[in-house]
Nucleic acid binder design. Structure first.
Lengths: 345, 345
DNA sequence: CTGTTAGCGCTTTCAA
DNA sequence: TTGAAAGCGCTAACAG
């Protein structure tokens, strides 16, 4: 009881016949080929195509031309605002360039990442953008590099987002400097007793932010006791749980908690509140990323702004660039945003 | 000064030669083709493929087989948590089915939507999922229907998410009933004077939620004055601005504001606060969707839960289904979630 | 400027 | 079981 007679799609051949011209002429009239075809014919072909509802088969075109119009995007989790903002920037830029974006999700698993990169190669994309945060000392790192290098050797372009521990063009987010700057700003506000919700130990992004923060404090002669540093998942729930642990361990001997990203910071705020502690008033909180929602939590969250959409856009622009830009990394600026979650003391 | 010698990728031909077998045998050993090939040869081909780093060209495969492994997804805005959650569900389900997801963004523009659908047809995807909210009285509606019907006629599958004003399989979200139920629950809590931040007039989702809410109140003999209903953009800023206007217009003659989605509700809460009004205490607020962030705003937001990831998953499952399921709509349950933003009065 | 024809990389008859 | 060969839909020489 199959429904469809599933007649096959209209082909260029059909259009050519309908228009009474050759296949080649039809092709030339329809693809961007430089105007080497009689305006008269062109129109006839266009009309025929419209009448028949013809849509060029992109796969066939790709095979014939030996190149596609797709960019493959790899993220850790598309539901995370950090990645979805970046993805939005990429999709927009891709659209402007007439490119199609395909999307895969690693779920933070390096083995899966490698597997997906292999699979994505089959698409023969023009560009592969890897936005999942890299972890250090990855067993699979050399394999990943090999796979990506092979891809570049066949004319593909690879762009990483965040940090470049691997030898590919990268949109660099200065996690270290941003966090360091944040630390200084907070000391200026009068804070002295810090704790950090640090994320996974091996996650480079998390590590850089923590290190930057601690170094920033150190510049002011402030150290953070090891007991005030909690490692946990890079998620809202990770932040929530870590804050829990922290509170049980340290009571209130801390006046500011820095979480290495905003979703964690938001989890921290809720955890504080669940402990009867008022974020901002009793204990200040700061995050990193400046995802949209942090303006709407209470108190509004102090954080380090990353122009996430622009990051995505830059990634694609770099990938498509020629000449020197081709290999140069892009640096995006970060900016400390002080809000109500860290009032002056 | 081009960098790459860009040697072309390894082809099946190369593998066959390396393994010393025919093209056909190589093909049969590598694709899932039923075991009609000598285990000995199989192994030799596999090894050769591995040695050469061969990845099958998906475009070529698609041309040869006349069918792809891709599902095309159309959303209004991937940075919106509503859509990014749905997308996450789709990507996950697609991955399990060995499918690749391509993504396009309409930005809420119906003309653009039509254009994108046309373009996406070129990919010859197995499935097209349209998650952008539909607007009523769309000029382009018939054209969209025509385009999608043509797609289905050639064996493609179309699934809509949300409401089915067009004749295609749909994952139905019962916006009307959920809002109606919410209204009842709020009346039970003791609320009497309502306002609504209603979103764009023509957006079906927004309209259904508003109508459901008003009807729910009507059941209890409560009507909402027209002046208490503000239409605005379906975004956080839309909610913020509408709340502003509402407050200037009505002062505090209202004890609960219902926003037709969560991001708007969050904007409303911030707007209230900017007016020195405490959400929850002074004026209650309710939203719709139950996106993750609403647990972390203060007070936590009362809303109607939609299992967004599951919606995405269902969409793909429906698309891939055979037989009767093929055309049946999926209904996902909604659930009223009462939180601190609507305390008992 | 137009049409003929040879591919692109892969799958799948069809014989052997 | 295996291989030769004919496509899949399209583009790009190459002649006319």
């Amino acid at each position: 009881m199959d429904l469809a007679g599933a007649r096959s799609p209209v082909t260029l051949h059909d259009v050519a016949r309908e228009a009474g011209v050759s296949l080649a002429t039809a092709s030339r009239s329809l693809n961007g080929s430089t105007r080497t075809v009689n305006a008269d014919y062109r129109e006839r072909v266009r009309q025929a195509a419209a009448r028949l509802g013809y849509t060029p088969n992109l796969s066939a075109r790709a095979v014939a031309k030996g190149t596609t119009m797709t960019v493959a995007l790899l993220v850790a989790d598309i539901a995370d605002p950090y990645f979805s903002q970046i993805a939005a920037g990429i999709v927009r830029a891709a659209d402007e360039a007439g490119l199609i974006v395909t999307m895969e999700v690693t779920e933070g698993d390096a083995a899966r990442e490698l597997e997906l990169v292999r699979a994505m190669r089959g698409q023969r994309p023009r560009v592969m953008i890897l936005a999942g945060s890299r972890t250090s000392k990855e067993r699979s790192s050399e394999q990943l590099t090999a796979e990506l290098s092979a891809f570049e050797a066949t004319g593909g372009r690879v762009v990483f987002i965040s940090q470049n521990d691997l030898p590919f063009t990268t949109v660099l987010i200065d996690n270290y400097a941003g966090a360091k700057h944040l630390a200084s700003s907070l000391v200026d506000l009068g804070y002295r007793d810090f704790a950090a919700i640090a994320g996974p130990r091996q996650l480079i992004t998390a590590r850089d932010r923590l290190t930057g923060f601690l170094d920033g404090l150190a510049q002011h002669g402030i150290t953070v006791p090891a007991a005030h540093i909690c490692h946990s998942a890079f998620t809202r729930d990770g932040g929530y749980e870590a804050a829990h642990n922290l509170l049980e361990r340290t009571g209130r001997g801390v006046d500011l908690v820095f979480a290495v990203n905003d979703v964690m910071a938001v989890g921290v705020m809720t955890a504080l509140r669940d402990h009867g502690i008022l974020p901002g008033d009793d204990i200040a909180v700061a995050g990193y990323d400046d995802i949209p929602l942090v303006r709407d939590v209470t108190p509004a969250l102090t954080t380090v702004r990353i122009p996430l959409e622009e990051v995505g856009r830059q990634a694609l622009i770099r990938a498509l660039a020629h000449g020197d830009l081709r290999v140069a990394n892009a640096h995006v600026p970060t900016e400390v945003i002080l809000r109500a979650s860290t009032p002056r003391r």
